[in-house]
Design a protein around this nucleic acid. Sequence first.
DNA 1: GTAATATGCTACCCCAATATAGTATATATT
DNA 2: AATATATACTATATTGGGGTAGCATATTAC
Lengths: 135, 135
Amino acid sequence: MTFTRTTEYALRALGYMASREGEMLSADQLHAKLKIPKKYLQRLLTDLKRSGLLKSVRGRNGGFILSRRTGDITLAEIVHAVEGTRTRPECFFGFAKCALDVPCAMHDVWIRSQSTVQEALQTTRLADIAGTTFR
Amino acid sequence: MTFTRTTEYALRALGYMASREGEMLSADQLHAKLKIPKKYLQRLLTDLKRSGLLKSVRGRNGGFILSRRTGDITLAEIVHAVEGTRTRPECFFGFAKCALDVPCAMHDVWIRSQSTVQEALQTTRLADIAGTTFR
DNA sequence: GTAATATGCTACCCCAATATAGTATATATT
DNA sequence: AATATATACTATATTGGGGTAGCATATTAC
């Protein structure tokens, strides 16, 4: 249960945008604020737009803006948008049969830890993390 | 908190070796049993030897053998040997200051989940997973 | 002493995630 | 109309994990 750097970027960017709900922010502004590689961020934002989480406006004074209310977007949704349907291993060791009949020693701990995070992702919303780092 | 495939390989290999404690096993035997790419496994085993977890014997009838008792080696130790001191982010989002003064919304869940697994790694020993998959 | 079977070592190749560069296109300001 | 500032798109490095190949070296069996 680790996320790619890209996912981290997405959460950071959207988290910041949540703290300025209603404002249109350009990739450049976000880059300056969040220190995420400019061009990479640009593409990521475009992707997030394509996935429906953001709206974009081209041209001067353009930028990106959340397409829904911050209280309405779960972190799980964001992770899913960025990572797609990445199948996670059911067993800690990648043992094929473990989960079925012969749980390995780490099985319980692993599953519990996974679902803890997973549930948190589903219940935590953008509004909950808005501006965490920017005070 | 996900591990590389290499770490998984190491845990698999050592787990199997634990189930045959005291026997000298060649990279080839392990490869045949565990379906881990031969050459890659070879190198991994050499690394594990260099890190002190295994002893090796060259030449005919040579191979690898655990250098300590299975009840004496923690999984944490193995992970550390393979991954080195990979610093994990303390904050779920990679927010620099989060852990310090302004915990993010995911902080507690994240830390708790991380340390749950971490503790399990420190308390689970090779003896506990010996031969898990091989019945 | 030669063949067979091991580990040890070095140099590659492949691929996906990450990152960069350049150009095309849209729009507001002047 | 021209300029400045945006996004959109495409192509191209870069990097690290994973994997392969070949030869050197050590040891046992014969």
